[in-house]
């Protein structure tokens, strides 16, 4: 039997009359890059929010490493091994790039009620900061305010911050959105490089990226997962073609 890091079973979530998740089930194998695709408004971001704990499901269960996590608050899910990057860029705009990264590093280091010593000179920060910045190619930007970075660089920073905690499962919501062609290539390289280190659940609209990166793909339409399979299976699945053609 396959080793599933994440299993989602019969998840439901409504916003008033909108059923954003409708009896949604899928599973992600350890070590895979697993893509979630679907038309605009299909409910992909909602799934990620339900997984990370920002939203509470109305019903259904989420297993991470075979442990039920759907009742845990956000931060406990983080310590259970989830890391995420938001669709809406939400780095700390008023902090510098290295401070952003330092914050991500320190978050995993117990409490931060230390009031005197400069945060940037703490041991772990000194040890890991340079590497963490280099991993996402931001070494020469460390003094910049994160708010002044280009759109692509903000994405890189976010992914870099999500990686710091060495998450077992990384949730990426449209990392390519707003990237120029060059940025897309860079990020693709970055994500491929992560393969083997962590499992990635990737929401992405850019089909080239999805089909070249993903090991498996799940298709969500109107909050329901209509198909899961290898890129080849998905490409040839008549239901998926219907859904996409029907939408456009």
């Amino acid at each position: 039997m396959a080793d599933y890091i994440l299993q989602v079973k019969n998840l439901c979530k409504s916003f008033g009359a909108v059923e954003a998740s409708r009896d949604l089930s899928f599973a992600v194998q350890r070590g895979h890059i697993h893509a979630l695709i679907g038309p605009n408004g299909a409910g992909k971001t909602t799934v990620l929010n339900l997984l990370s704990g920002e939203l509470q499901a109305d019903s259904g269960t989420i297993f991470l490493n075979a442990k039920k996590i759907n009742k845990l608050p956000v931060h406990q899910r983080v310590s259970a091994g989830l890391g995420r990057s938001f669709q809406i860029t939400s780095i700390f705009e008023s902090l510098s790039v290295s401070e952003n990264m330092a914050l991500a590093i320190l978050a995993g280091e117990g409490h931060n009620f230390r009031f005197w010593r400069n945060a940037m000179t703490v041991g772990v920060v000194k040890r890991e900061l340079a590497g963490a910045l280099a991993r996402v190619d931001l070494s020469d930007r460390e003094e910049q305010l994160a708010g002044n970075l280009s759109h692509g660089e903000k994405r890189q920073l976010e992914v870099g911050m999500a990686l710091v905690g060495k998450p077992q499962l990384l949730l990426l919501d449209e990392p390519m959105a707003g990237q120029g062609a060059g940025g897309t290539v860079e990020l693709k390289k970055l994500i491929l490089g992560l393969k083997g280190q962590t499992t990635i659940l990737l929401v992405e609209h850019d089909m080239d990226v999805v089909f070249s990166l993903a090991d498996r793909i799940s298709v969500i339409v109107y909050g329901h997962c209509i198909a899961s399979g290898s890129p080849e299976q998905i490409r040839t699945n008549p239901e998926v073609q219907m859904a996409y053609l029907g939408e456009q």
Binding site: F92, L95, N118
Partner: peptide, 8 residues
């Protein structure tokens, strides 16, 4: 400090 970084 660490506190200040988190606070900001």
């Amino acid at each position: 400090s660490r506190f200040g970084l988190v606070l900001r």
